[in-house]
Write a protein that binds this DNA or RNA. Structure first.
Lengths: 184, 184, 184, 184
DNA sequence: GATGAATGAGAGTTCATTCAT
DNA sequence: AATGAATGAACTCTCATTCAT
């Protein structure tokens, strides 16, 4: 019946900090223990109560999407200077993120089952479409390559990451996978 | 207080049949409801008690591996005539299985976390090594392609399957993915 | 970090308005969703923060009692002209209130468990005692009927209301129940 | 991960006993602490695990209905000899049950909200219809009284029970309420 | 050897209460 | 004085695992 034993109530001012802390914790804990990690573990790692986690992110998917949105923001920065190298930078970041956020694939599987209407990839597709033409004019990639192909290649890299027998083998496998693909 | 209610106790003779029924059920139920489906649902679908399921497959992984082994058996048949077409047949079956057994990726993730020592891909690698040289001599694939590359390509196809926004889009996406890869 | 986001802080002047708004909201929300509705829902409906609700009514019972007190005030108006019709008006209002405030019974149950010393019915009893003699002299009800009996009859009507299979059947059932009772 | 520390697994043979124990516990604990008592408290009182409770009665309503069904069985015994006293015995048992099973009203409220299609009272109505004619021919009750009226009277008695200020006052209040009603 | 009910730890969710702003 | 986010205990429900029959 009584409330807060340990933690102090920092009031509404803590909201923004808490949100950040939760996202950071989710990223770390999901990376280590997988997408299905107990939400209570994320709350503990973030240093917040379970109710706060629930208030900010009502479902596990909401939380995972928020992590994903952070990734997208980073990608947007990568294509900001719309030069011939933008696609290369984008592709680098995409591959990097795939290696960091393994939990992402499990999230996509979950989303497919529970949120069929989620657009998800559309934002990414738009980013690629912004960067692709310049890269083609600069001769960095084939003219026959479409934006969808780039997204598809990204999904293929994910396959390599999640099926890796151990974390140490990921980097080399992804490297080799990139060499099999018609992308830089 | 008689023994069973509905089912008769068929004794040891049922063991083999039960094993088959469980595998069939696991394949079907995992395909529909995902790798994390309750084991009781698989037992129900197989028409056996939970104890039997447990006797044959002590852990979820044991069950999933057994399904995987069945797949491998099918692949062995594909490379049996060791001609120049063997690799093509193998690759076809691999892609087909990837599309059918989506739950496989979740299984691999689970295995990585809980059974680090599992060899998994070695059997597959051996199969590819058996079929690759003939294919290269027949000019079907580049000489620079290694057996590891084929396994890697298979992992990439898995990425496409599990990240598909909806089941209907899988076939076309996989088709396109194959066209990006240096395999038939 | 300004004080409030949307609402302005109207200061002490708002206290009375808030109290009224909360009572109105409690009546409406409890009628629709039951006595056990989350207090946050009442605060939201009233357009106040949860802290204000808490300040005015520290417990759910305090709030429910206040609603009940409003009912009593209405009843007092009914017996104000202490004529032979006063009991009839009072009884009419009582039955009406029973039909409107179904949540009341759950409140009484709650009160019994958590506030054994609450007098509750005494105020009502006093009201009836004020109106009963004139009604008996006017021949409206039997002389053998006591004030306690009237309160008891009211409790019986409550039983009809809360056990009604559906809201639409309440009116007719109460009508019939009244006809079984020695009251107008 | 490990299972049962204290309790032993008595196997399927315990099923029937457990069901009885749960019903007995539900009746006792709900009587004491109300319909909304934690299900875990009922399981503890019954000496079973929470899963067992859940297996036998998936929802709180299922459990409460089962208790109610036991009551109905008792009522059926009361009207078994279809003589002129059957209605009297039935009415006695009904009033008695109302006093014992206060939680019933909260159950009805719950059922109304969550199971609108539940027939509930129909079984009782049928019982009354079986016993009423003989009672009327024996001059025990008015001919104008219908079976619905008896059920209605029962609902009125419930109102008295649940609104009683304290348990000790229930008996006298019900006694008085019966005297206000045109039933024995 | 098969059955399927029992077990109970733990996950997810809710919400009364507090309190910094 | 008002706000509404934070807190975390408590509750319900699930399901892997065991084991009497």
């Amino acid at each position: 019946m009584t409330t807060g034993a340990g933690r102090v109530n920092r009031g509404p001012a803590a909201a923004s900090d808490n949100r950040q802390a939760i996202l950071r914790a989710a990223r770390a804990v999901m990376a280590e223990r997988g997408y299905r990690v107990p939400l209570s573990a994320i709350a503990r790692e973030a240093g917040v109560g379970q109710g706060v986690l629930y208030r900010h992110f009502p479902t596990r998917l909401d939380l995972a999407f928020a992590v994903f949105e952070e990734n997208v923001a980073e990608l947007e920065a990568a294509v900001a200077p719309a030069d011939g190298e933008a696609l290369g930078r984008l592709w680098d970041r995409l591959v990097q993120q795939a290696m960091e956020t393994t939990a992402f694939v499990e999230m996509v599987v979950d989303a497919r089952r529970n949120l069929p209407e989620y657009d998800g990839g559309d934002r990414l597709l738009a980013l690629v479409e912004r960067a692709l033409p310049a890269a083609q004019q600069a001769g960095r990639v084939e003219h026959s390559l479409t934006a969808s192909d780039v997204v598809l290649a990204w999904r293929m890299v994910f396959g390599v990451v999640v099926t890796a027998p151990d974390p140490d083998s990921v980097r080399a496998a992804v490297q080799r996978a990139r060499s099999l693909l018609p992308l830089p």
